[in-house]
């Protein structure tokens, strides 16, 4: 009932905007393949059953956009130098208007991002969506997981307080253990044999430029492959529907017909025909919007109520500070200790 009302309201709003912007749209459509792209992207058939489980990718993309936007605001005040990095973060936290909230959104956004990527991968694994012809999509997804963890890690390092400094110490040491290229990697990251101000500049470069650029490029190819090959869903979409399931409505019949035609088209890369399909827009977009909104509200509440800490200034000579691992590397920390016989 509510869903139907929302869909009708969305359709009427889209119609209204469409009428107002029709001349502009027609002008652009004569020069660019707008209608063809719209038909391909929005009116794309997707598997219907279990649709809420296939919305984490959109929530991850939403969080990535939030990370980019909040990151740009933080960049306006952050100073990547040995003496001023931590001070500039304290300035953002205590002096800049709503700086604490922007920093909180950036921090808790990264927490949600790593968790959601984990859930998204587990869902893909459990539903068997990595099987042929989607091997490349899975491999790019694993690359994205590594890049996101690396981005979150370098973000913690550039706070350049005690924890940030010792995270760099541990991170560059572990990078140095990589077989064959380890010593080269550690030297490249540190900017020499020991940690210097150059190490902070390089970690900052990785965090704000290199890793996000790679993330953006690989995420775009990953999503492009999902569009090209069609959403897979999970095994339940390729089995007979349970008895008592209502017959498909007009949209569902049209979506199913379209996907059957696409699978037969030799130019198409789609190979799977689900037992029941629906349009990506507005039905699946609605579900993705709801999940993305819930995730954003969760991140906002966390940012509002839980301040992100800043530790003591860097003191490499300390003998009393006990470095701790970042939350997503806790298992790795324990694994290292256990393999050395200390855990």
């Amino acid at each position: 009932m509510i869903f139907g009302t929302v869909v009708e309201a969305t359709e009427s709003t889209v119609d209204l905007i469409g009428r107002e912007l029709e001349p502009v749209y027609n002008w652009l459509d004569q020069r660019l393949p707008l209608t063809r792209t719209k038909e391909r992207l929005l009116f794309d058939p997707v598997p219907e059953r279990g649709g809420w489980w296939y919305t984490f990718g959109a929530a991850i993309y939403t969080l990535l956009i939030i990370q980019f936007i909040t990151g740009i605001f933080l960049l306006m005040y952050y100073v990547p130098s040995w003496n001023e990095a931590r001070v500039s973060i304290l300035y953002i936290q205590n002096e800049v208007f709503l700086g604490w909230l922007v920093r909180g959104l950036h921090y808790w956004g990264q927490v949600a991002l790593v968790l959601l990527v984990g859930i998204h991968m587990l869902r893909t694994f459990f539903s068997g969506a990595y099987k042929a012809p989607r091997e490349l999509t899975w491999m790019l997804g694993v690359t994205l997981l590594i890049l996101m963890v690396a981005t979150a890690f370098t973000g913690g390092c550039i706070r350049w307080d005690q924890s940030g400094y010792f995270d760099v110490v541990v991170g560059t040491t572990i990078a140095g253990w990589t077989p064959i290229i380890g010593p080269f990697l550690a030297k490249l990251w540190r900017g020499g044999d020991v940690i210097t101000p150059l190490t902070l500049t390089r970690t900052f470069t990785f965090h704000v430029w290199l890793l996000p650029a790679l993330l953006f490029i690989i995420a775009t190819i990953h999503v492009g492959l999902v569009i090209l090959q069609g959403q897979f869903g999970s095994w339940i979409n390729y089995e007979p529907e349970p008895p008592g399931t209502p017959p498909p409505n007009e949209d569902e019949r049209a979506a199913l017909e379209k996907v059957k035609r696409e699978v037969l088209d030799p130019r198409s890369r789609k190979v799977n025909v689900p037992s029941r399909a629906t349009w990506f827009f507005p039905y699946h977009v609605f579900k993705e919007g709801v999940v993305s909104m819930v995730v954003f509200v969760g991140v906002f509440i966390a940012a509002f109520f839980f301040q992100v800490p800043v530790e003591e200034p860097v003191d490499p000579t300390t003998t009393t500070y006990a470095p701790t691992s970042m939350w997503f590397f806790l298992f790795e920390d324990q694994c290292s200790l256990s393999s050395l016989g200390h855990g």
Binding site: Q162, E311, A322, T324, S325, L330, F331, E332, Q334
Partner: peptide, 20 residues
């Protein structure tokens, strides 16, 4: 394994919070 190792590490790290 990841959950158990993370919980073991978290209990250890919690004691560090008093040192730090």
């Amino acid at each position: 394994s990841v959950l158990v190792l993370a919980l073991l590490a978290a209990s250890r790290v919690y004691s560090y919070s008093f040192i730090n």
